[in-house]
Design a protein around this nucleic acid. Structure first.
Lengths: 164, 164
DNA sequence: GCCGTCGTTTGGATTTATTCTAAATAGCGT
DNA sequence: ACGCTATTTAGAATAAATCCAAACGACGGC
């Protein structure tokens, strides 16, 4: 009975392994739909242990805190969650609102406004997670600086990606 | 009595000129603080005609619809508004939550993770506003396609920038 | 300059998303 | 197995934004 990979993931991040966490993580890992908290709740409850709403949020926050999941706030709707690891970005459909993953390399779209497959991009939004001029000075000279791009570390206070 | 520029802006976009709109637009144009709807409300009401909450939202929505203002949903907080025209992006301070404008050219940060002034960027989020694979097919061949980058046209349903 | 139309504003109630709280429960190291 | 502590739970509470129907006011026409 090999310990399912998800258990290891949780343990490796210092989280206790619990039913709710496994259920939520399994659901998120198995979809590319960028579900909202509500969708996570009903999906998980439909085929499982029945979690309270608060638990869904607790679990999602915990997972985001340790970097197993990212939260993205899209348009005017509720926050959506994404268990995809690795660098990628998002295309929000102007038509149906669906969120599509965009591979990192497609970043070059910035200079052209057209996706590799020819689809047009009307606008793009870039948001950086860093320190503003004021706060930057305070932290000056610490070991923290200049870690490269997409990564997240346990203990970060920031739970959600920032949006444009 | 030259008609203040803001009036013209509104008229040019097909909006009636009203007190509330002038007040909100004036406030937004005069700050780089990316205020929330609530901040707009109190700021405008402090020195002016006293708008109802609903009006603040109405006005903000109207302005966003015609492209005079953009809304950005940041982290887990409420939506913030920005009357800056022209292409730029945002840096959300991990320390104080302040939102700083980042010039378009600094986009090159993507490849390096460091701002021109040396500050590190921990993570960056890119969100595209376009059509997903499904919806893209439906609109195939229309005149709509491939308009270049940052622009917004009246009548767009999308009011808010999308967030990562 | 006055009028009518239709877009806009208003206050208050309402919905939606998320957080809080305190008590019950369950991991997991020993 | 035991105990310490993290986690879950239900429901109430808060925050943000929207909805509604009535009153108002901008502005084009006369």
């Amino acid at each position: 009975m090999a310990p399912p990979a998800l258990e290891c993931l949780l343990r490796a991040r210092g989280l206790r392994v619990t039913e709710p966490r496994l259920a939520v993580l399994a659901y998120l890992a198995g979809t590319d739909r960028h579900p909202t908290a509500e969708e996570v709740e009903s999906a998980v409850n439909a085929a499982g242990p029945v979690l309270s709403r608060a638990s869904v949020y607790n679990v999602l926050h915990a997972l985001v805190d340790v970097g197993l999941v990212t939260g993205l706030s899209v348009k005017d709707g509720p926050v959506r969650y994404d268990a995809h690891l690795g660098p990628h970005h998002h295309l929000v459909c102007r038509g149906c609102g669906r969120v599509e993953d965009v591979e990192w390399k497609d970043f070059a779209v910035a200079e052209r406004g057209v996706l590799p497959d020819g689809r047009a991009v009307r606008t793009l939004f870039l948001t950086l997670d860093g320190l503003c001029t004021g706060c930057g000075e305070k932290e000056e000279g610490r070991g923290e600086a200049a870690s490269p791009l997409p990564s997240r570390r346990p203990g970060d206070a920031q739970r959600f990606s920032t949006g444009t």
